[in-house]
């Protein structure tokens, strides 16, 4: 089934952004943009989330936090890097404490451009990520099936 596409739950984390993208992510939830139309909810809890929305680049302190949150999300999951900072570090690329985009740490599926990214493009990015989410779900299911076959006595060697 394709329930995943109809009910993606977000988790937003501000890695080291200037707030511009963050408030635009929030603005998506509010009456003008209202992403709940598409079933999108901001959960605030990695264990419930499907889509990890990261803004801002990686620095020393949040490195482990991002990885930790990513690991606590159940499969299938996608990462959307919102804003130019999350993609490459953006204007802060050369700052003393920034080591670049999110993709150094975790696999990013969709990059949303902009400084700050506009709500329209953020929504677009998330909708794009849903296709990938669906693909990942199918892969996950196949993996599980293979594992199952591997375990059953007639299913070949382990």
């Amino acid at each position: 089934m394709t329930y995943l596409k109809k009910s993606p739950w977000l988790l937003h984390y501000d890695a080291s952004s200037c707030n511009g993208c963050d408030i635009e992510v929030l603005a998506c939830l509010t009456p003008l943009y209202d992403v709940e139309r598409f079933g999108i909810i901001n959960t605030g809890n990695p264990k419930h989330a499907d889509v990890f929305v990261v803004t801002g680049g990686v620095n020393e302190q949040n490195r482990e936090v991002i990885r930790n949150i990513y690991e606590q999300m159940p499969e299938p999951k996608v990462v959307v890097a919102v804003g130019i900072c999350a993609a490459s570090g953006g204007v802060f690329r050369e700052c003393s404490n920034i080591s670049g985009g999110i993709d150094q740490l975790i696999p990013v599926d969709v990059y949303v451009p902009g400084c700050a990214a506009r709500p329209e493009s953020i929504i677009d990015g998330i909708v794009k990520s849903l296709e990938i989410l669906e693909e990942k779900r199918i892969q996950m299911k196949e993996r599980a099936k293979q594992k199952e076959q591997g375990r059953s006595p007639g299913g070949g060697e382990r």
């Binding site: 020393e60 302190q61 404490n97 080591s99």
Partner: peptide
């Protein structure tokens, strides 16, 4: 308070 990549980066 602020952990930095390079200690005492300023």
């Amino acid at each position: 308070l602020i952990r930095t990549t390079v200690p005492y980066s300023f």
